[in-house]
């Protein structure tokens, strides 16, 4: 293959990256507040889409392109759209409002604080790599994907297969439950 230009690590745009970071962070934080404060479930889904896309943007900035693509495919393109689909098919009134009781808010804030504390604890007690290793600029995205694939099919083969079988079981179960029973006829 050709040796392309971006193998050399020159950062002439010192000012651009922080700006991009803060812009993405603002999108993530604001849309996360939107999810929590909104009462309409489809609006929540759209705000969640913005949050997930913002996190994917972070992954792109960190040169973890494959992770970003997986984030978009699995969460934004798969899980979230199924939630929206389910809501649209099941709710009687499309503009249904979700009201939360006081104790629910209390529990929610408590869980949020606990998770925040755990993340903070983890962040403080982890030695973060610095320099080229931290930004992943030494390795390209393609080799990343190859490494992930090799790891999944060698070191982590058993968990991978278990997850695959679990998904297959779920799919067969869903198809069985959704199957039209013979008694109802073709109606």
């Amino acid at each position: 293959m050709l040796l392309l230009a971006d193998q050399t690590v020159v950062e002439p745009f010192g000012a651009v990256k922080p700006l991009l970071f803060y812009a993405l962070a603002a999108v993530i934080v604001l849309s996360a507040w939107g999810i929590v404060l909104s009462q309409n479930i489809v609006r929540m889904a759209v705000y969640l889409l913005l949050t997930l896309a913002g996190v994917a943007g972070f992954y792109f900035m960190l040169h973890a392109e494959f992770l970003a693509a997986v984030q978009l495919i699995v969460y934004a393109g798969g899980t979230l759209i199924l939630i929206v689909f389910g809501v649209m098919l099941t709710s009687k009134n499309p503009f249904m409002q979700l009201k939360t009781a006081l104790w629910e808010r209390f529990v929610g804030v408590l869980i949020g604080l606990v998770i925040f504390g755990l993340l903070l604890f983890g962040l403080v007690h982890t030695a973060l790599p610095t320099g080229a290793a931290a930004t992943g600029e030494s390795g390209g995205g393609h080799y990343q994907v190859a490494a992930i694939g090799r790891a999944l099919l060698s070191d982590y083969l058993v968990p991978f297969e278990v997850a695959a079988v679990l998904l297959l079981v779920v799919m067969i179960g869903a198809a069985f439950m959704a199957r039209r029973s013979a008694k109802q006829g073709n109606g």
Partner: peptide
């Protein structure tokens, strides 16, 4: 010029339905 160009197109395409 990201190295996973094709997967990127698929990923972006999967959000197009919104």
């Amino acid at each position: 010029p990201i190295n996973i160009g094709v997967v990127y197109i698929l990923a972006i395409g999967s959000t197009a339905v919104y």
